[in-house]
Design a protein around this nucleic acid. Structure first.
Lengths: 149, 149
DNA sequence: TGGTTATAGTAAGTATAGATACTATTAATT
DNA sequence: AATTAATAGTATCTATACTTACTATAACCA
């Protein structure tokens, strides 16, 4: 078996293609957002006031990375952070008005270019692929970083 | 459509699982190698004397990243670099004896844990997935970083 | 041959992506 | 209530994973 045909290699290449398509499309649309920044913004818009640890858990990241991501979203004026008065350890993150507007626009764009990531496959094959990918992940849903043992 | 069901998100999660399995298995076997370090070592062992740019092209990376990767492989005593006398810009990279020994051992291990990356799928589904992943990538084989326009 | 172009490697900078450790706070237990 | 354990966020560190720019060298070509 050659390395280039192994699951790990193929998955890395797919992720590479995915991020390339993402950054190209964002640039074309005039936005400066990375995939993880979009994922975090999506979570914040869907669940306003969530703290960083919960955001990280929701999208399967570690707290340290999400801390930096929220930093940059805040610098761009898309979200704000404020201390949760009922738990002073936590920071409630909320999307600004600009953040909500950007999110709605970008969501449509992101949804629109998903098929491009798998453009080598027919529509039916893409559905198959997504079904298999989701199933492959269903079992290790609890293996995200920061997950308590 | 929710973000968690989109191709980009699923692929990122798969890549995350893949790297987690890789680092866990390497640690269990007592090796200190990352996925890209293994990929580079694989290329060097298969094509001794290749320069860094060619290694990068082979495994779809940019030159800058591979430069650092080769640095670390060299520090670990797995490869050596020497100036190509016919083209003094290029550095011919070769695996040391230790590098070759480590490679042969690690290759077996890496090959062995590939099914674990897709452990949520049956053997037949894994084959399907790998076939679709390879096909999806076949068309954008030329979109790797550093590729000349 | 002289000038342009292209390429190999590196440097610097940004952003993940994560591990580990530390502080501040809260929860749980005795 | 005092101690202990757990958790949220941050800091630090390592390693990708790029982009852009720069230097050195080689290839081209008029």
């Amino acid at each position: 078996m050659k390395v280039s045909g192994m699951a790990g290699h193929l998955i890395r290449r797919l992720n590479q293609t995915s991020t390339q398509v993402f950054s190209l499309r964002m640039q074309m649309a005039g936005y400066d957002l990375t995939p993880v920044q979009f994922a975090a913004l999506d979570t914040v818009c869907s669940s306003p006031g969530l703290d960083q640890a919960a955001i990280a858990a929701q999208i399967a990241y570690d707290r340290a990375t999400i801390g930096g991501v929220i930093d940059r979203l805040e610098q761009k004026g898309l979200v704000t952070r404020k201390v949760n008065e009922r738990d002073r350890r936590a920071r409630a993150v909320t999307a600004t008005e600009t953040g909500q507007r950007v999110y709605q626009d970008v969501f449509e764009i992101v949804e629109g270019f998903q098929p491009e990531i798998l453009s080598g496959l027919s529509a039916e094959e893409q559905k198959q692929f997504l079904r298999l990918a989701a199933k492959a992940l269903a079992f290790n849903a609890d293996t995200s970083p920061d997950a308590e043992a």
